[in-house]
Amino acid sequence: MDPIAWLSGSLGVPYWAVRAVAAPLVYPGLAAFMVVALFIIWAERKIAARVQMRVGPLYVSRRLGGALQVLADGVRIAFQEIIIPVGVEKWSFVLSPILAFTVVSLAFTMVPGGPGIYGFRSSLSLLATYAIVTLTPILVIVMGWASNNKFSYIGAGREALVSITGEATLLASLLAAAMMYGSMDFVEIVEAQMRSHVPGLVANPVAALLFFIAALLVTDRLPFDLVLGEQEIVQGPYTEYTGLLFALSMALGYAKLYVLMLVFTHVFLAGWAPFTSPLLGSIAVFAKTLLLMLVAVFLRSVYGRMRLDQVASMFWSKLFPLALVAFVVSALIHPIYAP
């Protein structure tokens, strides 16, 4: 019944090794991410269209409401010529988006997709996931630098500011939650919530809200899409990219969003609760994550882009101090999660 056990049996490889490969490649990893990306980009366009009294994508796969539009776009982009402009730092230009996406994909080895569905289990998996996700800004800055374009360069500068600003709040809210559960292991965190029947969202709404807002910032979602900043800096660090490299750099934001929303699901929405079987649990995790992502993409049709200085001052002078309140809440409430 368990596909991982069946694979390990027929291939003669240890169980943990199959799991370590299957998790990042299949679920919750790349294969699942492809489905999520195709769905969420379509949903983003469709939701925005509905709010804006339009129809949105329709004519590619009319029966499905244009759901295959993103696939069609993706195929087109995949076969597009990759142009490397004169004057770019060739190797860093080509390698940094590939590397950045690879780094984000590494997070899928850590984040569980359901009960027992994970690559590795570690007592520090929460922190490790955070560390992996926050490695990408460095590569985005490399992209902007290598592109040899003023808009890219300004975008790289914004990425630096945004990552420092957002990640402080992101880490603070995660640590507040970890303090509440007394653990940094996703499995233990979910089990603590299942045991007490109180999801983290109810126990510590401040930390949950902060995490969500900071996740929007580090993944360039509106109202914080400063790095993309189309009206000022065209596409920021990604301006010069074409073809598959462009697709990778665009997928980067969605991959980060997917990872962070998975983390949100585990830390604040009790992961696979109320199920304990791998299949139903995985479906629960997947559904919760998708729902969170839908909320995140819905905000695109509500807000414009916030200004750089306002974002920085909001995060440092309002949200970061609020994270300290989240710590206080955690300190008060942690007995309910005591084993």
Binding site: M53, D225, Q231, R300, S301, R305
Partner: peptide
């Protein structure tokens, strides 16, 4: 003015 601030809803609403 809306789309200059990346507010696509204002853009589409006004044009609609």
């Amino acid at each position: 003015g809306g789309i200059f601030l990346n507010h696509s809803t204002m853009y589409m609403w006004a044009f609609g």
